[in-house]
C-alpha cells in the first residue's frame, strides 16, 4: 500500500498479513555505551519484560529487541506490530507507560531532546525508522489471535488428558479435533 504525498513516502514498514515490521537505528552518545547497556538491563528486569513474563506494555507487538552494535556506538530497536504502525504513531506517545520506558533508553542516543515535547519525540523516532528490504513471517495471526490459540491448545490438551477423551471425541462434530489428537 502506498500513499501519494506529493512524491514523498511509500507507507513506512512492510506488512505480512496483519503484522508490520518496525526498525529504528540510533547513534549512541559518546561514552554512553556502558550506561545504555545498564539502562537496557534495567528494562529487561522490569516486570513484564523479564524472559518468560510475556507481558510487555504494548499488547500488540509480537516481540522486541534492542541491539547494541559497532562497539556499542549504534543501537537498533526491532519489533513486529499488529496493524500499520504509522497509523498508531501518535498513540504510542500519549497512551500507556511505553514512552516513559523508552525515554530512559533514548536519553543515551544522539538527537533525543527528551520529554515532554511529544511532537519532537515523534519526529525523532520517525527519523530513526528504516523500512526493511525484506520481511518474512512463519505464522499468520495477531498477538490477540495467537494468545487465544494458545489458550485453546492448552484447553485441548486438558481434554485429551481426561480418561474418557477418546470416547468423547468420537462424535462426528469433533472429527477435526480428533485429527489433531494423535500426537
Amino acid at each position: 500500500m502506498t500513499t501519494q504525498d506529493d512524491g514523498a513516502a511509500t507507507q513506512p514498514g512492510l506488512m505480512v498479513g496483519p503484522t508490520s515490521e518496525f526498525s529504528l537505528f540510533f547513534r549512541v552518545k559518546p561514552d554512553q555505551g556502558q550506561s545504555l547497556r545498564a539502562a537496557l538491563l534495567d528494562l529487561q528486569n522490569t516486570p513484564g519484560y523479564r524472559p518468560g513474563d510475556y507481558g510487555m506494555a504494548i499488547k500488540t507487538i509480537h516481540e522486541a529487541r534492542f541491539v547494541l552494535f559497532d562497539e556499542d556506538t549504534r543501537l537498533a530497536f526491532i519489533t513486529s506490530f499488529d496493524g500499520p504502525w504509522d497509523a498508531y504513531m501518535e498513540d504510542f506517545f500519549t497512551s500507556g507507560p511505553t514512552i516513559a520506558l523508552f525515554d530512559l533508553i533514548f536519553q543515551h542516543v544522539e538527537g533525543y531532546e527528551g520529554l515532554p515535547d511529544v511532537a519532537a519525540v515523534k519526529a525523532f523516532v520517525l527519523g530513526a525508522e528504516q523500512t526493511a528490504a525484506a520481511y518474512a513471517r512463519n505464522y499468520g495471526g495477531t498477538v490477540k489471535e495467537i494468545r487465544k490459540a494458545q489458550r485453546v491448545a492448552d484447553a485441548f490438551q486438558q481434554v485429551l488428558d481426561h480418561p474418557q477423551a477418546a470416547e468423547a471425541l468420537e462424535h462426528p462434530a469433533l472429527q477435526p479435533l480428533l485429527d489433531e489428537a494423535a500426537d
Binding site: 510487555m56 506494555a57 504494548i58 499488547k59 500488540t60 507487538i61 506490530f81 498508531y88 501518535e90 498513540d91 504510542f92 500519549t94 497512551s95 500507556g96 507507560p97 511505553t98
Partner: peptide
C-alpha cells in the same frame, strides 16, 4: 485501554 498501543481520544 489495556492494549497500550491506542489512545481512543485521538
Amino acid at each position: 485501554d489495556e492494549d497500550g498501543s491506542v489512545d481512543v481520544r485521538l
